[in-house]
Amino acid sequence: MFTAKIKESDQLSCPISNQELKHYQLQSKRLLRSDINGGHLTRRRGQSLEFKDFAHYQPGDDIRYVDWRASARIGLPHEWIIKTFVAEQKLQILLSIDNRESMLLPQPTSKLHHACWLAQSIKTICTNNQDIVNVHQLFGDTNQALTHINRSNMAFGDQSQQLYSALSKTPPTDTSVNHRQLAQLARPAAVWVIISDFYFKTNKSIDLLAELVRKRRAAKNWIIFIDINSWPNEKAQLGLGSRRILGPNGSPDKTNGIYDINEQHLLQVEGKIQHHKNQLFNRLSHQTIDSSCWLWPSDKTFDHQQFFRERFFNDKVLQRLFMRDTF
């Protein structure tokens, strides 16, 4: 089994600082959500201990909320002023990270690095909002959630490296979806963010994941696919000519992995990758799912951190996560 060997220096820290994330959060909140997309709203009117505003009494309002003193002071005769409160419901974000061996490539900066950086950035924003973040290992039959990040361990430090270490040490030996832990963790109206390269070798994995997505969608979860697509970069690194191609599990076939790569072959491989992805997306075509593809540049030595920053700050799907709600 292939095991990625990464030095500590290669475990790059998250490229986005907390300050930048706060700024990003403010910028996002300036945007008004235009529609209610499912039952994921975070703030609702209702009874709470937190005062929000005064309002004129309307028929049907609970008379217990009439502020008699305020009504006598500022209200007109026969006009009552009532207090309004905010009933705050905490947002739960489930981050399901694919840590299969394909995510450990390419080296030295792998797709799993990007996934961990993304998890760290989302976690930071959510902890600022006092939301709940759970990190979940997408594949593999494991009995425990990988990481539970909430207010109790809301250390504002960069935890992406620890997360990377935990995920890279134990890549799943099977491709079954870790649905049991997900069922235990997920609350109604939670946001489920799936971070993966969506490389599937068998239809069974596709079926299992599609079935799980349908279940969560039925539970009113907002589902977001983040597709980390490294193919352009790997294609540039591969080049043309005689190559011995090793994958996560060594040589892929009996030819010892040696091919004479040409342009046609690259197109053929690219089509095959897309075909497998389409198999999943086609099965979920009737579901309302947000997806974002993080397509790596076709540059052999691009700046991963710079790429991540640009991609994160301009991702419309993520921005919607942190928009100001409408009431």
């Binding site: 394909s102 992995g257 491989v269």
Partner: peptide, 10 residues
């Protein structure tokens, strides 16, 4: 020799 995450598709 090149190690790729997409090696299975070759």
């Amino acid at each position: 020799t090149q190690r790729l995450s997409s090696a299975d598709f070759f």
